[in-house]
Amino acid sequence: MTKLSTLAEAVASIPSGAHVALSGFAITRCNMAFAREVIRQGIRRLTVSQCVGAMDADMLAGAGAVERIIYGGGSLDRFGRLNCVNRGIEEGTLVAEEYSSLSLAFRYLAGALGLPFIPIRSLRGSDILKRLQELAPAEIGYVDDPFTGDNWLVLKPLIPDVAVVQVQVADEGGNAWIMGPRWDNEEQVKASKRTIVITEHLVPTEVIRREPERTLIPGFRVSHVVHLPFAAHPTSVYRAYDYDAEHIRHYAEATKTPEGFQKYLDKYVYGVQDHWGYLELVGGLKHLNNLIADPILGY
C-alpha cells in the first residue's frame, strides 16, 4: 500500500497541540522543509522533542509554533547557538524540559519497549534534575531495586504523537534506511504512535528486500512517506548533501533578534509557495549541485 503523500498532506495530518519528535541533530538531518510547511500552515502549540536540539526545532520555536520543547540541550555547532529556543527560554515564552542526551534517549527507549519506567545513573546531583523536578515532577521518580535494594532514579517513557524523520532511502510503504549515525532516531520512531518519513531517495520495495538488514524504520510504523530532495537544506544529509555553511551563517545572524528572524521568515518561509520555490530562492540547481556529497567522503 502506498503511503506516498505531498509534504502539505503529511503536515496537515498533524493537529495543533501535538507532540512531534524531530530527527535533527544540531545541523544535520533536520526537518527543515517540514518546519517551513508547519509554519506556513499555521500549526501551533506543538510539543517538540529531540535528544540534541537542532535547527528544525529552533525555526519552529522562533515562529511561535512551539509551546514546549523536551530536549537535551543543543546548538548550531560552531555556527552559533539555538537563538530562538534560547530567547524563548530566557523570556519565559517557551517551556523547556531540559534533559541530557542519554536520559532523553532512555525515555524514548522505554516508550519503544513498552516499559513503565526506566532507571538511569545520569542526572543525579545535577541542577538539571532539580529543574525537572520543579517543571515536570510527573516524569521523575525513584524506586528500590528489588534485587539489591539500591535506590534508583527512574524516568517516565516518552511517547510522541508522531516522529518526523529525514532519511536517505525509503520505499513507498515507509520502510526506510538511515545512513551514518542515527543518534536517537530509531528510539524516537519506535516510541512514537506513528511516523512521517521524509526521504531523499525513493526506491522500489525490491531494493529494500535485497538488503533488509539495513531497514531501521519499519513501514508498519509509518503513516506518510514524502519524497522530497534537499528537504533538510540548509542542514546536511550524510552521503546525500553537505550543509550550506553560508545559509546557516545567515540564519545564525538573522535569529539574533526577533526582527531579524521575522525578515528571514518573510523571505524564506512565507515568501515562497512551497519547497520548490524555496530551492529556487536559495540558489536553484546550480547552487544545490555544489552541495552534493562526494561518494567516498559522504559530505
Binding site: 543543543g74 534560547n86 531540559e98 534533559y99 541530557s100 542526551s101 542519554l102 542526572l123 545535577s126 538539571i128
Partner: peptide, 10 residues
Amino acid sequence: HFVGSGGAND
C-alpha cells in the same frame, strides 16, 4: 541560556 548538557551530564 547557552547550550545545555548534550552528553556531558551522562
